[in-house]
Amino acid sequence: MKPDKSMSDKDTTKTTPNDEPLIAGHNYDGIEEYDNPMPGWWVWLFVASIVWTPIYILGVHQFGFINSYEDDLADKQAELAEWRTAYEDANPSLDVSDESIAAYVGVAEHVEAGSALFTKNCAMCHGPAAEGLIGPNLTDEYWIHGPANSNLFGVITNGVLEKGMTPWGSILSVEERSQLVAFIRSVAGSNPPGGKAPEGEIATITADAG
């Protein structure tokens, strides 16, 4: 009889179902043992896992019909490159220039969006009012990497790694970066309290500086 059939056995009078052999002499502090066979499905799953083992090992490390770490990475990277190419083909890269950014400057909706982005991503280093903290003051007339819209856009995009400025090019879109420039323009000359001492070279900029 298959062992699992008696799982639902509610017969309480028998302590030993008579179709199962109790092993004589196996009695430890009252605990006895049956000589039941191992369940077939258990044996076969175990055997299957053992048979699969050399196939998998050889597949990865000898014959290569299963991907190794490096194969996987190469596949995934190639796929990512494809996505990027396809996206660029479909969305020809926006021609970013002083003028294209100038279209954002002074537009309330963009300044507002830029302000939100600034609070989330930039305030930790440039201060909540762009007054400068770890990074330079962005409200004064001094610029380390040049005063033009495109200069600001470039620093945001590529970062200044040696000084700790993060490159945001892969994180924020062209529009978002343009909105950030618009926000920075909007705080020019706001002279917030606790402003950091000027760094870089002086350059007066107007709202639509080019």
Partner: peptide, 19 residues
């Protein structure tokens, strides 16, 4: 030890124990 003691039932399979 404690399960067969509490259930007062013999252990299901000695062979399975070994393997």
């Amino acid at each position: 030890y404690f399960l067969p003691k509490a259930a007062e039932r013999p252990v299901f399979s000695y062979r399975l124990s070994i393997v």
